Computed example of a mutant assay.
Amino acid sequence: MSHSTRCLNCDAIASNVFCSHCGQKTDTHRITLKHFVFHDILHGVWHFEKGILFTIKEALVRPGNAALDYIAGKRIRYYNVFYLALILLGLNIFLTHYYDSLSEVYENPISDVKNNAAGMKIASFMSKYAKAILFSFVPLFALKSTLLFRRRKLNLSEHFIVAGMIFLGIVLITVVGTLFSFFDFTYFDSISEVAEFVFSLLILFYVIYSYYAAFKSDYSVWGFSWRMLLFLLFIIVELFLFFVLLFGFVTHWKFGSINYHV
């Protein structure tokens, strides 16, 4: 192993272990089978997983503080929150699709929703654009927190980071909740019903807890409470408007006539 005075990647003068220009290590070595297996592969995979596990732990345990740490510049230990959320969203969509497939086998394949043309169109739209719809919560969360929690003096992009970390936690909780839904196909199907209620409350508590952890030092309990209440009311209004617009779109704005035959 040798240390070069010039970076072999960008040819800049390098006096430390890492090049100050591009960040590549300055120590060089022959690539051997032992080094390739134990360093390039295992070491790389370990650091990749370590970053993911650390980010998941932070998103679940201290999402508000973790987001503020990231904004403050403590970023090297975190895996990209939005990439990780996309991976988990894909997993949740796969689990949901698998659950729907099992439902057609174990339950009555002709359900009320399938007999409802509007219901089928809504289900198809939600399935096709699931990731885009769910990710739209991030800018909506960021806009609301920018308006309601201004004393921290974060800009909109920084509120995106807070919203992204919270969104990651919501997706993690949702994935676990989806796994519990598979109890529907066992003798313990009542567990899935209880889990659905519990995880809905858990997500609500998680959102409140996350924003409280991030902004509690800027507001009194009352000041935070009424802001959070407005935040949740905005979410309800947004969801209502979304479903009204979606229903209007799939029914060609004929709300009074619903076709129940495919």
Rank of each mutant, 00 (worst) to 15 (best):
L241N: 03
N155H: 12
G169A: 05
E107Y: 12
V162Y: 02
L102W: 12
K128Q: 14
T55H: 04
D11N: 14
L134I: 12
R62T: 13
S15G: 06
V17H: 13
V81F: 15
H97E: 14
Y70P: 05
N80E: 11
L202M: 14
S20I: 08
L89Y: 10
V138M: 10
T5K: 09
T251R: 11
A72G: 10
Y211H: 13
T5Q: 09
F125R: 05
L148V: 00
H159I: 01
R30W: 10
I235C: 05
S217A: 13
F224C: 04
L134R: 03
M165N: 11
F94H: 09
L156H: 05
W222G: 02
A130W: 07
C10R: 08
N108A: 07
Q24T: 09
A195P: 11
V37H: 01
G73A: 10
S225V: 07
H21M: 07
N92L: 11
F242G: 06
Q24V: 06
H21I: 06
F149H: 02
Y260N: 13
C7L: 08
V221Q: 05
K254C: 00
L134Y: 08
I173D: 01
R77I: 10
D11M: 05
G248K: 02
I71Q: 09
F180T: 13
F180G: 01
K216S: 15
G223M: 05
S103K: 10
F197A: 13
F36V: 06
L179A: 13
V105F: 11
F205T: 10
I56V: 15
R151M: 03
L53H: 03
D40Y: 09
L229Y: 02
R77P: 05
A132R: 02
E58G: 06
M120F: 00
I52E: 07
Y211E: 01
F247P: 05
G256L: 11
E158C: 08
L179V: 15
L84A: 07
I52A: 11
P139A: 00
I173G: 03
F149E: 01
K50N: 14
I76W: 03
L179D: 04
Y187I: 03
S190G: 04
G119P: 09
F125W: 11
S200H: 09
M120Y: 00
